[in-house]
Design a protein around this nucleic acid. Sequence first.
DNA 1: CTTACTGCAAATATTTTGCATTTGG
DNA 2: CCAAATGCAAAATATTTGCAGTAAG
Lengths: 148, 148
Amino acid sequence: MSSMADGTTAEDLRARLHEQGLRLTPQRRLVLDAVTRLRHATPEAVSAEVRRTDPGLNASTVYRTLELLERLGLVRHTHLGSGPATYHAGDDAGHLHLVCEGCGRVEEADVALAADLVGRLHAVSGFEPDVGHMAISGRCRECAGQPR
Amino acid sequence: MSSMADGTTAEDLRARLHEQGLRLTPQRRLVLDAVTRLRHATPEAVSAEVRRTDPGLNASTVYRTLELLERLGLVRHTHLGSGPATYHAGDDAGHLHLVCEGCGRVEEADVALAADLVGRLHAVSGFEPDVGHMAISGRCRECAGQPR
DNA sequence: CTTACTGCAAATATTTTGCATTTGG
DNA sequence: CCAAATGCAAAATATTTGCAGTAAG
């Protein structure tokens, strides 16, 4: 019940680590699992999730592991507004993040919606947006009318 | 040399404050001046700037003042990547922020470039983006090719 | 065995808060 | 005068780091 297609991801993980003389530890497996399962999880949330399995797993290990997994290209992080960054599995990168200033919820939207913007930006200033990393704040349908 | 058209802004500030029974203090004037002069300044940068005039001005006053000015609609903040938020004068809001992951520089672009995206998002999910608050990370022309 | 990894505790960095004193109006 | 604002110091939050012990391969 802890994983679905995670067998593949775990193999990936092992392979990527060994390529660089690094080791596959239970902690690293747990962190990757948690990020995959939770979407848009803060380091704090990841810690809470992994501790359900290993209550002794330390926060600094979570931070170090997230950083490592990002270097390996297995997870990515985005800054959604004021709080801590949120992490998501790397193969889950193909969407825009819509952050509601009213209720704080995070929606996702197809990156294709930004195709026009990407093209224009590139034409105008040579800037190459990292679309999957883009956080757009605003108001969701429900919060749209309300004052604040 | 400390202000150009700031006389207007200072009047604005006084008026807005008095509307709500609040007071115009030298500290508040200095903070608004600094935000206007520096573009995209972190609270830290604002502190440094105001201390050039008033070395005793406390950091917590800067934080409190930035929050106040934002409530009054005179400044806005944006989260540009990992660091602290950056503040800019409110009437300076009409641009997108392009943050380069390579060199860290912040470019600005016309909000009109995002018109298509805004329309599509609204159509698809009812989401109303706050365009002036949008931070887009990616690679600027200079850093575009490079590995990382 | 060897060296990478973890846990822990302490150090940083950033922002917030309570309270006594000062000050704008 | 009096309520609002500041300065200061301590608290809260978020993240990083050094190091001694543990464990992957």
